[in-house]
Structures are given as C-alpha cells and as structure tokens.
C-alpha cells in the first residue's frame, strides 16, 4: 500500500486509513508536548526540553525557509526559470540590512533596506537578464549561476569573511514563558519552558506573510493574473495583460521576500559567507518537496525541511543532512511533481 495509489483512486478506505494515522500521529505529538515525560521516555529520547526546543527551532527555521522559498517558487511557477541566485539575494539583503541598521541604529530600517534593495535588484535582474533570454530555460539558469558566483565573490570583497550578528531591538528581545511544562521540580513546582520571543515572532511573521501572499494570489486582480500566468503564460499574454509587468512584480515580491528573510534570519542566526548556499539548498529542497510554483507547497515543504533539519541536528547530529535528503528522495520517488505540485 503506497501513497500514490491512495492518493489517486478508490480513496475512501485508504483515505480513512491515512486520516486515522494522521490523527494518531497528531495525538501523539500533542501528548509529547503537553505531558510530563515518564522516566522511560526521557532515558530514551533525552529530556523533554531538548525535544520541544528542537520542534520550536524547526518551526522557526521553517518560517525562514518559507520566506525564502516562497519567492523562489513563485518566480519559478510563473517564469519557468530557476533563479539559482536566490540564495545570493538572501545574503545580500542580509548584508545591506545589517549595514543600514548599523548606520542608522534602527533595526526596522535595516529590514526595510534589505527588503527594498532586493526588490529593486529583482526587478533589474528581470529587466536586464531574464527578459533578454526569454524562453531559454537552460541559459537563464546558467546566467543565474554566473551571477551567484560573482555576487558571492563581491560580497566577500565588500563585507569580508567575518560573521555579523544583528542586535534585535529591545521590544523583540528576551525570552517568554510558554505554557509547556518541561519537568516537575522535587518540591512539586512545574518548570515552564522559556523560548526566545524573537524566534516566535519570526514564525508569526512568516505565517502572516504566508497568509498575505495567499490573499494576494487568491483575492486580488494581480494575484489572479499571476495564477493565470502560472497555468498558461501565453494565454494570459493573449488576453491583453502586460506579462512582463506581472513578471517584474512577481520578481520584486520574490526577491524582496528573500531580502526580508535575510535580515530577519540574520538576526536569528548570523550573517556570514556561505549562508547563500545554505538557503539556496533549503529553497531547492523545499520547492522540490512542496511542488514548484505552489506557495502552499512551499509552506508544507518548509515545515518538513525545517523540522527534519532541527530534529536531525539534535538527535543524530552527524547525519542531520541525510534526513533532509531522504525526505527529498522519498517525495521524488512517490510524487515527482512535489507534494502540492500540479502534474507536469
């Protein structure tokens, strides 16, 4: 019994079985979160705090990955070009945001600078590069590779090989208590888990932006055009829409999101050379898993990849990447078009 069969035909029993499995898994997860772990479980999986922290971190990272990958997947879905310079947009946004925040002293200005500058770079890329090579997938991709090589090197020249750390403003700093009990003290008091407030806010921001993207795509005229363009670009052009303008808008959104994620992510983790590759890999795996061109798919993929990465980091540190990789291979084996991707 495999998922591809279950997904396609005579679903009722198979679907029920899957729903049951899903419910059981969800119940188990809720129990893992809420209950105070018995001794046996602690000795097997380590303290509860480690587990809950891994899940929280996974979700935070997933939020970041979603921000980066949603732009990537949108651009791909509409323009059929793989922007392998997307990781460079992330890192450049982070650097510019850092410099701006450092210079003005306001973190929010850093965010705006990172986002806007990348949106502009995105439009320029679309105008000067992709429009010139329209309809030639391979060359467009090769060009983005060339750009990422040059960009990485120039960023190294300007910002050096140092690791930068943003300081988050005070109102975002600090840790908050969560209602999750990690342990019971000997005197009977419950120990509640604390988690950095900023990281929670990253996830909240990702969710808000995700919902915003969904609303733009599904409830506005521009979104309608973008969706139509994803389905059939030529038909959209034929019905009188300025497709190039739509492309530019999408590119600006995608690149701007990458820049935004750069500043936000740089504040969670750090900004350093090599982060571009990390986020490019994350974007690639997220859209391969989630399905190209689907924002919902990007959300699902990001969640899977982020959780796999952080859980792997905690429970089998030297094989963590393999977990991410296995997810990708399994999805490719069962659904080559990705979990939410349309059949090609």
């Amino acid at each position: 019994m495999n998922a591809s069969q279950a997904g396609t035909q005579q679903g009722v029993t198979a679907r029920q079985a899957w729903a049951l499995i899903g419910l059981l898994a969800a119940a188990a997860l809720v129990w893992l979160f809420l209950a105070v772990w018995p001794e046996g479980l602690v000795s097997w999986m380590g303290p509860k705090k480690t587990f809950v922290n891994a899940i929280f971190n996974g979700v935070t990272v997933a939020g970041l990955y979603f921000l980066v990958a949603s732009g990537f997947t949108l651009v791909f879905g509409l323009m059929r070009n793989v922007n392998l310079a997307h990781g460079s947009l992330y890192l450049l946004g982070a650097y510019i945001g850092y410099s701006a925040a450092n210079w003005t002293g306001y973190w929010l200005i850093g965010i705006a600078a990172g986002m806007l500058s990348m949106a502009i770079v995105g439009v320029l890329l679309q105008y000067f590069v992709f429009r010139k090579l329209e309809g030639d997938d391979l060359r467009q991709t090769l060009v983005t590779i060339g750009i990422s090589i040059v960009a990485a090197d120039l960023m190294l020249a300007v910002w050096g090989g140092n690791t930068y750390q943003f300081s988050v403003p005070e109102w975002l700093d600090g840790a908050i208590s969560t209602p999750i009990i990690t342990a019971i003290k000997s005197n009977g008091d419950a120990v509640y888990m604390k988690y950095p407030f900023y990281r929670l806010m990253v996830f909240v921001a990702a969710v808000v932006i995700g919902i915003g993207l969904w609303l733009i795509l599904n409830r506005t005229r521009v979104g309608m055009m973008i969706q139509a363009g994803v389905d059939d670009r030529n038909m959209l052009a034929a019905s009188g829409v300025n497709v190039q303008l739509v492309f530019a808008v999408v590119f600006a959104i995608g690149a701007g999101l990458a820049g935004f994620a750069g500043v936000v992510g740089g504040s969670v983790l750090s900004v350093a050379p090599g982060e571009d590759v990390r986020y490019l890999l994350a974007s690639l795996v997220v859209v391969i898993v989630g399905g190209m061109g689907s924002v919902t798919g990007a959300a699902v993929g990001a969640l899977l990849v982020g959780l796999a990465e952080q859980i792997g980091l905690v429970y089998f540190p030297t094989y963590g990447v393999v977990l991410t990789f296995i997810i990708m291979v399994i999805v490719l084996a069962i659904r080559p078009q990705g979990l939410m991707g349309a059949a090609r």
């Binding site: 059929r80 890999l281 690639l284 795996v285 094989y319 990447v321 393999v322």
Partner: peptide
Amino acid sequence: ISVRTSGIYTIMITLAIATAFYYFVNQNY
C-alpha cells in the same frame, strides 16, 4: 533519483544532492 523529473529540474535536484553531500561530509566524522 534525478531522472524522475527532467529538464531544468535536473539541475535543481543534482545541485541539491551535491550540496547535501557537501554538508554531510562536513558534519560526519
């Protein structure tokens, strides 16, 4: 793995494989 898809996807999947392998050998002692 990569012939499951075609065209431009091959670049993406093989790049993902190359990157994953790089991180793997870097982490694994």
